[in-house]
Design a protein around this nucleic acid. Structure first.
Lengths: 229, 229
DNA sequence: TTTATTAATGTAGATTTTACACTTAGCAAG
DNA sequence: CTTGCTAAGTGTAAAATCTACATTAATAAA
């Protein structure tokens, strides 16, 4: 057996975060303008290096907090990227995470502090290194996740309309959904609470607001199901 | 920006492989008895360290080859495990890969060289470190994979009966499947070739042998589909 | 009061999934 | 050669799910 801890190579381990948000313009990702070399001035995912005494999940959370001030965000590990020259400075393996967040919950701090900016998926600039393929991969994963777990609590405001939820799903899946079929499927999940309150911004008639029933929503997060949309 | 390559910590990066095989006894995994400390004599997944100039996929392939003599095996990256003390000797992050292989294609070399041994999933011994959760995770992934891509080419002998294929799926999903419904669903995939040859071992009557139509099978591997079983 | 705008709602037909049982082929034993 | 045994092979009807689709309702503005 050739394994030997002492003779093995050590490498830099980075964590990069794909942060999804949603607003009236659609699905977005959060990017920053790098203020250091290499690729200074180019757009990039937010990221950082894993510390010696740190778990990957924790590093992802730390990095997200540093750039957005957001805590208690649920993140999922996506994939480890390890092409030899993916980072031209030094051999670096990057473990990508993705998160879903509500765009409204922060914005001020982050754009100010780190030149971070939201971009619609379709209009995002070219990113450094292999970050574009990370994003692509994350979108695929998010689409898949949408079919087996509910999505929305993380991305929508506390109170939202059915239309907003529909548009969120349409943005994630990038296809049109039938409104009536969508509503009845969502209702069959039994995770929404219909409020006695209407949003009057969108129309004369006004549309009912909903919230997620956090308990039921979280239960569905654990027990996978299948949702064909 | 605090990122700085030079000040970042470097870590050991291991690759561990969950190797699935299938034979008349069911779904199995390949384990080795560690012949070095720590945990010498305990059962473990096969694994090794990533080299400085090596991509993770390549490392996984190299490690598999070393222990099984098998080449050209398709592997998929599973997850990166990073608990601080997962390896008591030194901080090590492990990226797990899983592979599907035909048990018959090797066996001799490997058991001899490395004390490697196949274990039925249910009867596998307790493994070192966090390897048990890697295996659990890999099984979940394999189940999922089974619902969106065909499985079998990698695990079955060149020629096989419908019963074998059925039992493979039952082993992976660990539930009973209806024979007739299974056969018609598999046939609807249009990836099998029915041979003019029968396997006479299993019954008086004999059962037709099938092979995979490699081209059609590979096409399905690329274009995901959904297979409800 | 008319008009314009978006919200809300149900159903019929098509498709898919599920549950289920008898006949056939071939060998072995008598 | 007849009978018995074993696993292989095969189809259908009922249930569930998915899909496509159009009208009425509520309100504010003109």
């Amino acid at each position: 057996m050739l394994n030997s801890y002492s003779s093995a190579d050590k490498v830099l381990l980075a964590v990069d975060c794909i942060i999804f948000g949603f607003d009236e313009e659609g699905l977005k990702i959060l990017l920053i303008k790098r203020d250091f070399e290499p690729e200074k001035g180019k757009w990039s995912l937010i990221g950082g290096f894993l510390k010696k005494e740190e778990v990957l999940d924790t590093a992802a959370i730390r990095i997200l907090d540093r750039y957005t001030g957001l805590q208690d965000i649920y993140m999922e590990q996506l994939y480890a990227y390890s092409e030899i020259n993916r980072d031209p400075v030094e051999r670096t393996i990057s473990v990508a995470y993705y998160a879903l967040i509500n765009i409204e919950n922060h914005n001020e701090e982050l754009t100010q502090n780190y030149h971070a900016q939201w971009f619609s998926i379709a209009q995002a600039p070219k990113l450094i290194f292999d970050h574009d393929s990370m994003v692509e991969h994350a979108i695929r994963r998010l689409r898949y996740r949408t079919s087996i777990k509910p999505v929305g609590f993380e991305l929508l405001p506390e109170k939202f309309t059915m239309r907003q939820l529909l548009e969120l799903y349409e943005a994630i899946l990038s296809k049109e959904l039938d409104k009536r079929n969508f509503i009845s499927k969502i209702n069959s999940l039994d995770i929404l609470v219909k409020l006695d309150e209407k949003d009057m911004m969108s129309s004369r008639k006004g549309s009912y607001l909903y919230t997620f029933d956090k308990e039921k929503y979280d239960a569905k997060l654990l027990n996978d199901f299948v949702l064909n949309l």
